[in-house]
């Protein structure tokens, strides 16, 4: 069984110093080169699957120069077997589409049974490599995978995937399939031992080169900008109204206050207050409708 894990190396901006405006709020030392947490989870899932299958070969596939080399070695030390690097010409700027085209070409050579990638990276959070890979390769794709069970002699995977609002969809799919994993959902709890490190040092980087000439890049990054949040629309007084109406609106319309109401006094009044508050915010309706449903089924 061959599992390919797409690993993204990111230049993670972890904090704003707020001290250096020229550098767009981010000082150089504010960044670290690391493996995207979602990719790490993808590796975690791959390790788990291999354990279930009893055997298997985990290949790491990364795109571009090895900027976080040591961290990639750590991934190898954690249990991956091979490392493939898709080399691109230095100058080419890639968008999600061209990246997925390149990756899918590489995957064409790898003959994978399972392709696992992170769902959204921590830096750009485009969240589309997985589905796009599936599209290019003509494979099914399951997003937000939590857990995988192999059935039918490792030819079919029964995947538990998040389906929003805490629901879990159990999806059955024949291999090969593309799975995407959210950051933190398959944490790797062990750390590499000395032997693992030693072994990882001996894994060669297998480079693959594809011509980017034919690949269209539709989305280009123009610039990175300092945080200037887009105005949150709060109702500004309508100018068609007369001044006193505008004043009234102004004096009632500002909603930036985060000073909650305080309930003091006797318990009964407080409980009333809480219930009224919950009701006003619409938290009671589901309960009441649940009650309604129960009533029907009971009757």
């Amino acid at each position: 069984m061959k599992i390919v894990v797409c690993i993204k190396q990111v230049l993670h901006t972890y904090a704003r110093t707020g001290m250096d405006l020229q550098d767009r709020y981010v000082a150089p030392e504010d960044r670290v080169r690391m493996i995207d947490p979602a990719s790490e989870s993808a590796l975690g899932l791959a390790l788990k699957i291999r354990e279930l299958a009893g055997e298997g070969n985990i290949c790491l596939l990364t795109l571009g120069p090895l900027t976080a080399g040591e961290e990639l070695r750590r991934c190898l030390a954690l249990g991956a077997d091979q490392l493939y690097q898709v080399d691109v010409d230095g100058g080419a700027e890639l968008d999600s589409r061209s990246k997925s085209v390149l990756l899918s070409r590489a995957l064409g050579h790898l003959d994978a049974d399972l392709i696992i990638c992170g769902r959204e990276s921590i830096d750009t959070a485009n969240g589309q490599i997985g589905p796009r890979l599936a599209g290019h390769l003509g494979l099914p794709c399951v997003a937000s995978v939590r857990d995988v069970r192999l059935v039918d002699g490792c030819r079919t995977a029964e995947v538990r995937a998040g389906a929003g609002r805490g629901r879990v969809a159990v999806v059955s799919c024949r291999l090969p399939v593309v799975l995407t994993v959210e950051a933190g959902s398959a944490a790797i709890e062990h750390i590499p031992s000395v032997d693992d490190w030693r072994r990882s040092r001996q894994v060669p980087v297998q480079r693959m080169f594809f011509d980017t000439a034919g690949i269209a890049t539709g989305v280009l990054r123009e610039e990175i900008i300092a945080p200037r949040p887009r105005p949150k629309i709060v109702p500004a007084p309508d100018c068609g109204l007369d001044a006193f109406a505008r004043i009234d609106l102004l004096l009632t319309g500002s909603n930036v206050e985060k000073k909650g109401e305080m309930l003091v006094g006797d318990i009964e009044r407080q409980v009333d207050g809480i219930i009224a508050f919950l009701d006003a915010h619409g938290f009671l309706e589901p309960l009441q409708s649940a009650a309604g449903r129960e009533g029907v089924s009971g009757g």
Binding site: P231, P235, P237, G253, S254, V256, E257, K259
Partner: peptide, 16 residues
């Protein structure tokens, strides 16, 4: 008697 930050919506409108 006025709420806190009552001119904020106007500022937001100009800032937009």
């Amino acid at each position: 008697h006025t709420p806190l930050a009552y001119t904020v919506p106007l500022a937001a409108a100009i800032r937009s």
